[in-house]
Design a binder for these strands. Structure first.
Lengths: 211, 211
DNA sequence: TAGATTGTTAATCGATTAACAATC
DNA sequence: TAGATTGTTAATCGATTAACAATC
């Protein structure tokens, strides 16, 4: 592990660096200075250099950063060269949309299974997967060993689903449920996506400019 | 406006307070102390008191906070008593899922229109709305004056859609596109939801525990 | 009243920004 | 070499935590 611990603020900026560098690369940029990048991204050059230096020395004095090299270094830090096997629990509107909308391969994952309890959709196709009955979850996990799971189940099913998955070896959760999944379990990580909270934040913003 | 400016960190915690207080209320809690709430939420009692005191004095010494009163105060701060008219641009997989998955009413909004360019879906139903052709956007806006918009269009359409909407009076964006919408326009606010970045963050987490 | 818990000030901690020597 | 720009240390700023007087 590169340096001891990287602060959460830095980590949250990494995917955005990765995206911007990708666009720069597509637009034919070969090199970029921290100052130029800072102007494009709305950050300070200092912050950019501090952030990158958490992981090593990627630049060259007097020159700046090689766009392509820097991008692939950040990609490696983010684990995007991996294809961690992932499953989806809950293939309702949202689960279906996530599964078909996200490019898992470029995000470091491989979606290998989708499960639901609703008999009407079990057996149907979802991309190149067939939606399975949740009763098959255990045998599927022993065989395919998914490491990550997307939770798109109803809020009251979230906690028990999570603990079952942990017992089956799942180590990472992308949680879209209303439920506030916090992981006391050691070595288990959670990324909560609270869409409702996000929309409420927008409401606050409108409310505070109108007042 | 209650106090001068509220820090972003505080604002991001408000929806979560609101959620927890709702659950407490449903479970019959009448009062709660900052210490008890802090244990439930995984925060410090200090932080909770500091946060609430940005907006006024909602507690009572020796007693704590009245759950129901506090919740409704926070709801007012968040503008959840409003029903800001909102439209959806882009009714693909994700747009459709957002529209049907989110309870807009309880988040301070009212979804009053949905637009797309795909002729195959124009005219179809989406909840209680009929999907309209994007060419009707202008006349619709003059008549119904939406204040907020959900962007679920392809990334290359995002920037122009946003600027058109601004010219039609839209003041708030809930942006699901890959595009990094940053608002230099005065009085326009943006809430970016970068699902891809979120998944990448999860990849980082896995990567750093495995190393 | 005595005990509990707030509101608020002061202390600490961490993150961002500024500055500059090192060096390509 | 001279100019540019990094890597890194120091200064600043802001957010979190601790402490405690006020008061219900």
């Amino acid at each position: 592990m590169s340096k001891n611990t990287i602060s959460n603020s830095v980590i949250r900026r990494l995917p955005r660096y990765y995206r911007f560098l990708g666009e720069l690369e597509n637009n034919g940029y070969v090199r970029i200075s921290s100052r130029e990048l800072s102007e494009k991204m709305g950050l300070t050059a200092s912050q950019i250099r501090q952030d990158f230096n958490c992981f090593g020395e990627f630049g060259q004095q007097g020159y700046g950063y090689n766009v392509s090299d820097l991008r692939s270094e950040i990609g490696k830090i983010l684990g995007l060269d991996k294809k961690t096997p992932m499953i989806l629990l809950g293939v309702g509107n949202l689960g279906k949309a996530i599964a078909s909308h996200i490019d898992f391969q470029s995000k470091g994952f491989d979606l290998i299974g989708a499960f639901d309890t609703n008999e009407e959709i079990i057996g149907k196709e979802l991309g190149n997967l067939t939606i399975k009955d949740i009763s098959e979850l255990q045998s599927f996990c022993s065989e395919h060993k998914p490491v990550a799971a997307i939770l798109c189940v109803p809020v009251n099913a979230a906690a028990s689903a999570a603990s079952q998955l942990i017992s089956l070896g799942v180590k990472a959760f992308w949680n879209f449920t209303h439920y506030d999944l916090r992981m006391e379990y050691d070595g288990v990580i959670v990324e909560n996506v609270h869409l409702g909270d996000s929309l409420i934040t927008l409401s606050y913003g409108l409310n505070s400019i109108e007042l």
